[in-house]
Design a protein around this nucleic acid. Sequence first.
DNA 1: CAGCTCATGTGAAAGGCTTTTACATGAGCC
DNA 2: GGCTCATGTAAAAGCCTTTCACATGAGCTG
Lengths: 246, 246
Amino acid sequence: MSWRKEQRRAERGYHHGNLKEALLQAALGLIAEKGPGGFTFADAARMAGVSPAAPYRHFRDRDELLSSIAQRGFEQFEAQLTEAWDDGRPDTVTAFERLGKAYLAFAHNEPAFYSAMFESGLPVDLSPTLQAASERAFGVIRAAAERLAAMVPPGMPRPPAMMMALHIWSMSHGVASLFARGDQARRKLPMSAEDLLEAEVLIYLRGLGFPTDRRPSGPSDPSAKTATPPPLPPAGPPAGPWGTPK
Amino acid sequence: MSWRKEQRRAERGYHHGNLKEALLQAALGLIAEKGPGGFTFADAARMAGVSPAAPYRHFRDRDELLSSIAQRGFEQFEAQLTEAWDDGRPDTVTAFERLGKAYLAFAHNEPAFYSAMFESGLPVDLSPTLQAASERAFGVIRAAAERLAAMVPPGMPRPPAMMMALHIWSMSHGVASLFARGDQARRKLPMSAEDLLEAEVLIYLRGLGFPTDRRPSGPSDPSAKTATPPPLPPAGPPAGPWGTPK
DNA sequence: CAGCTCATGTGAAAGGCTTTTACATGAGCC
DNA sequence: GGCTCATGTAAAAGCCTTTCACATGAGCTG
């Protein structure tokens, strides 16, 4: 009956060899399917084929494992944001919008990381390194906002770059949290989260005085199958799936 | 030793009389202090002075209790948003900004409800009544957006009211989630969440073509002790507590 | 008021998870 | 070959969830 277990043991011997990494991967998978609250230290151990006590050799407790995942998440997040920003090429506004899309894409493609990072209930300041990783990721947005701020047309009120960065962050985070998380528990939308955020950012930029009339050149992937509505369609019938306001 | 228990029992008799309500209140308190993941069915029962099995007479399981709290939260949320919107008085834009503030105020003043509603990991469509309550709350924002949309100056692109409503919702939710939750785990800010959101909405409205030059008349409460920076201060030194982008 | 009934609460028990502790294994190093 | 220490294991305590059979007493009925 305990054939599997014995065989596993035979395969790897008494020592696992790479348990820490295996636990991180297992936890990531579990979080993806059951949410950060649903995942279990014991489950991760089972998945890695070790006893329930083994993980304690690598993580102080369940929270530390969660925190490690969040940390790794912030690092990947930073990398992807950095790549999307691409130091403002080819032009600041275009790169800026790519940044927003990258935010959504991360929430969508890495729901496990995203929820460990933002929805696990971990205090932000749990560990200094976690906090630092989080701030480095935000730093990308801030650097982009800095460049954008320098371009605000003269004569327009110019909010501090920090504030602009926080605005963009909150828009992205709001859309991502409400509408773009993995497949779990997200709300239905009459449009794609990407289009929603793109329009939001465009209106915001216009409010800062940026000319945004350039006919949007379509989505970055012209072969996309979904029809791509113009970011700012003219007024239409308000019929939509959302709650009919009484 | 079991003096307390016996006394309690004597006070209320075998039947509690109002257990359901007592459990909801207890859970609300527990969520406020330990987060939606930290609260325990058993704890709530203990707090109400009943056995751990008693709650099952009123809620199918832990999730149903959580869901009931979220439901109640959405109802209060809707009520407060409705009051803030006040049917668009004295003017649409003013009322609109009040709406945003009410969103933040709710997140700040009712962190337990807020996290049960948005951070508990419950699937949105867990119960139809929950979903309906959520949509009614959003309906308030949507109705406000509808009125606002009708006022977009001619000549400006006019996004669908639904989209504007979603924009406002995502801004509010983003700011609230990142910066305005109760005392737990929120990020530090170089400004108040209220000012941040107000500026964000103002810029957004300007992007829609609304004149927003009216000198902001200051915060709603002129006797507030905190200095009230103008929502759109001119560019200043970017020094701030936030991560120094390398 | 006596008696019945059913909603509501209790106790005990099964099954999991977390975390600690003492002990086992074996990889790396003299 | 023998030592040592990082890494795993087994067992146990404590807590939580959920279920089940049973207890209580509030409210209806005659």
